[in-house]
């Protein structure tokens, strides 16, 4: 028996087991029954029945450091994250976004405007209008520069959850993995790596729309592999679907830059955060169609079938390296460069 933690640590925010445990121990109290998918499902968002449609609602707070990084900034993440969470529930046409900003006393106006411009451009890309917002300023040291919360709402006729996998389903990753987290880590720890390490942050609702159009009801589960990486997403999908998942490591698309940085720092790209990718579970018969549709989209050119759901070992994520197999553990806490 693990004892209850008395103080919150950084690991409780990093998308792994510790975070899920904290949510289950503390916040599940708040869940109440709804007609649809509510808090107790611990999915990317909620889905509430409205007539013959579903209103999907999702909310996300963004606290990235550094706030400007190669490939993006906190503004682009704050829009993409929420648009993508809606898309993961099957709702690819956002009706509206909210924007709540908490600023630290002394934050430069120029930076704020730069972030605003980035949010505007990203929202345009996603076809997601901002409809309301809120601004607060706190004292110096009470926040780290800027925190942004966005909430999104969208309607859909069919909800896709992260619990729909069955034995025999195939899993598709929509592109190369680890780009965002590796770019941030390289910058944050000042590792002196030269090369094109850049975040993949992007709204992928258009890409997901193409996948859903191609696969229809055979698209059975989706998850965006942000914190916790692909490994974290697969653990959740395996546990909720009560299936095992077997990954073919050779089939996982990884850019050379990310692979090289991962080798050097002792970090497995499967554990590293993405901000513009999805893991999509598809009935095997439709996997080819969905893959072709994804590859035809500019954000899905590197999409690949990389794993399949098994009837055995429910909840386990197993990696076939081509040389042997191992259990892929869930990430715990912030990823750090290793020396051994």
């Amino acid at each position: 028996m693990e004892k209850l933690v008395q103080k919150i640590g950084l690991k409780h925010g990093s998308g792994g087991r510790a975070m899920r445990q904290l949510i289950e121990e503390v916040f599940l109290e708040l869940a109440s029954p709804v007609d649809g998918i509510g808090l107790s499902a611990l999915d990317d968002g909620a889905a509430l029945r409205i007539g013959d449609q579903w209103l999907v609602v999702t909310t996300d707070s963004h606290v990235v450091h550094p706030i400007f990084f190669p490939g993006g900034d906190i503004g682009r993440i704050s829009v993409s994250g929420t648009v993508n969470d809606l898309a993961m529930m099957g709702a690819t046409e956002p009706m509206g976004l909210t924007c709540a900003v908490i600023l630290e006393d002394g934050f430069p106006r120029a930076d704020l405007e730069r972030i605003r411009d980035s949010m505007k451009a990203t929202a345009l890309e996603a076809g997601a209008p901002f409809v309301t917002g809120d601004t607060k300023v706190v004292g110096r040291g009470d926040a780290d520069g800027i925190f942004i919360n966005t909430t999104g709402v969208a309607l859909t006729r069919r909800v896709v959850t992260d619990a729909g996998l069955r034995a025999g389903d195939l899993l598709i990753i929509t592109g190369t993995i680890g780009d965002h987290g590796m770019a941030i880590m390289s910058k944050r720890h000042d590792l002196g790596l030269q090369g094109d390490l850049r975040s993949d942050v992007a709204p992928i609702n258009g890409l997901i729309r193409a996948a859903l159009a191609a696969g229809g009801d055979d698209v059975v589960a989706m998850k965006d592999p942000t914190r916790g990486g692909v490994a974290g997403s697969l653990h959740e999908m395996a546990a909720k679907g009560k299936v095992g998942v077997l990954i073919d490591e050779q089939a996982v698309p990884v850019r050379d830059e990310v692979r090289a940085a991962g080798d050097m720092l002792g970090i497995d790209p499967l554990l590293v955060a993405n901000e513009g990718k999805a893991v999509i579970g598809v009935r095997a018969a439709s996997a080819g169609k969905v893959l072709a549709a994804l590859r035809a989209h500019p954000l899905g050119r590197d999409a690949a079938i990389f794993a399949r759901a098994l009837g055995e070992r429910p909840g386990a994520v197993i990696l076939d390296t081509g040389l042997g197999k191992r259990l892929l553990a869930e990430p715990e806490g912030e990823l750090l460069p290793r020396i051994c």
């Binding site: 002196g192 030269q194 050379d256 090289a260 050097m264």
Partner: peptide, 28 residues
């Protein structure tokens, strides 16, 4: 116990070499 990664030397300046690790470069 110790991570060691091979790379190819691109340039040398005194006691510092720029090394290509097949994707990223780093000074060693």
């Amino acid at each position: 116990m110790c991570l060691g990664v091979p790379g190819k030397v691109l340039a040398i300046d005194g006691m510092v070499a720029t090394v290509d690790f097949f994707g990223v470069k780093k000074e060693l």
